[in-house]
Amino acid sequence: MHFRPVWIVIVLGSRISSAFAAVVPVPDVEKLTEQSTLIVVGELTSTQRDIRATTVDFNNRRINVRVQRGTFRIDQVVKGDHQPSSVTVEFAVPDTPLGWSVPPEHAYGLFFFKDTGGTLELIDVYHAWVPVPRGISVTADTPLERVVKTLGEAISIPDSSRDMKQIALWFLDFGKSDASTRALRAVITNADPIVGLNAARALIRRGDVSGLEVIKRAFLPGPQSLPNQLEETFQMQSRSVYAIPS
Rank of each mutant, 00 (worst) to 15 (best):
N190I: 03
I51A: 09
L172R: 02
R62P: 00
I123M: 15
L169P: 01
L44T: 00
K114G: 02
P221D: 06
I123V: 15
Y126H: 11
K176E: 13
L197R: 14
A140M: 02
W100T: 00
I123Y: 10
T47I: 15
V148T: 03
V56L: 09
T71I: 13
L98R: 13
E105A: 09
T189Q: 15
S17T: 08
E90I: 11
K165E: 06
E43L: 07
E105K: 11
A128H: 14
G80N: 03
L184Y: 00
V6T: 13
L12H: 10
I188Q: 00
A22H: 12
V241D: 00
D95E: 12
F171G: 00
D50L: 09
F219Y: 15
Q48E: 14
G207I: 01
P94V: 06
L197G: 01
L220Y: 03
I215W: 04
K149F: 07
L220C: 13
A53G: 10
L151Q: 08
F234M: 00
V24R: 14
T96S: 14
D28M: 06
V93K: 12
P221Q: 08
G70R: 04
D95R: 08
V187C: 02
T150D: 01
V130H: 04
R201C: 07
K114R: 15
V56E: 12
V102Y: 04
V132F: 11
G99E: 07
Y126V: 06
R66S: 13
A154V: 05
V89H: 05
G109N: 04
F20Q: 12
L169T: 01
R61G: 03
P133C: 08
A22E: 13
R201H: 05
E90L: 15
P103E: 01
I16S: 03
V65Q: 00
R146I: 05
A199V: 04
V132R: 05
Q76I: 06
V65W: 03
V195I: 13
V77N: 06
I8R: 12
L184K: 00
N198H: 15
P25A: 12
A243D: 05
T33R: 03
R66T: 11
A186E: 10
R185K: 13
S160G: 07
A22Q: 15
